[in-house]
């Protein structure tokens, strides 16, 4: 955070200074992210336990995920995190137009991620690996594959909801930045939105090896 004096215009009555308010907002987001760690953690625990119990079945099912789309999506999301961090940097240095453009780029990369994710879901529907709705697998490990894909859809689905919310927030920030709402003296909302966006990326960093890379090296 730069040491420039902050704007008092946005100061709420419960704060003594704008800096106190800005730091409190960031802290609030960090506490929320701690909550989010556990929100995803419940599913990750289920994944860990089931994978440890059925290693072969999980490897078999994971091998059939769309690793190309998954990898491209990983790159897309990491790049969006980069543009987001850059946007915060630009806001901090009072480059308002750049902030808006970089935020817009972040939101667009998020949309690209969702589009690719949708394509992947569509392919999976056609392959018949959607448990409960369209699942046509047989063999001794079919029930394990069903559990794998159930967790796959829950994990990526909940992550997708987070991406969607993130896109909304980032787009809103882009509009506000374009209208000149932020400056080096007031950019807390951009910073806090950035934290959220990076968290969404962090979740994907762990989902990527768990979903797409398991069982690739053969049985």
């Amino acid at each position: 955070m730069s040491e420039a004096p902050l704007d008092q215009v946005h100061l709420e009555p419960q704060y003594a200074t704008a800096r106190q308010q800005a730091e409190t907002a960031a802290l609030g987001m960090w506490v929320f992210l701690a909550t989010e760690v556990l929100f995803f953690g419940g599913m990750l625990f289920a994944y860990t336990y089931l994978r440890a119990t059925f290693p072969e079945g999980f490897a078999e099912a994971a091998r059939e995920t769309h690793v190309v789309i998954g990898t491209i999506n990983t790159v897309v999301l990491l790049t969006s995190s980069f543009t987001m961090a850059w946007a915060v940097h630009a806001a901090e240095h009072d480059r308002r137009r750049a902030t808006a453009l970089l935020l817009a780029a972040t939101a667009l990369l998020g949309l690209l991620f969702l589009g690719l994710k949708g394509l992947e879901y569509y392919k999976e529907w056609q392959e018949g690996v959607v448990p409960g709705l369209n699942f046509h697998k047989d063999g001794p490990n079919a029930h394990v594959a069903a559990m794998f894909y159930y967790l796959y859809f829950m994990l990526t689905g909940v992550h997708g909801v987070h991406v969607t919310i993130g896109i909304g927030l980032v787009a809103l920030m882009a509009v506000r930045a374009w209208r000149g709402g932020f400056s080096a003296r007031y950019f807390t909302p951009v910073e806090v939105t950035g934290l959220y966006w990076h968290f969404v990326d962090l979740v994907w960093i762990f989902l990527y090896p768990l979903i797409y890379l398991a069982g690739r090296s053969g049985p």
Partner: peptide
């Protein structure tokens, strides 16, 4: 809702989970 999951032993899951 979907009768698939990880908690029901009939589906291969674990109620203790």
């Amino acid at each position: 809702l979907l009768k698939v999951g990880i908690f029901d032993p009939a589906l291969g899951g674990d109620p203790l989970l």
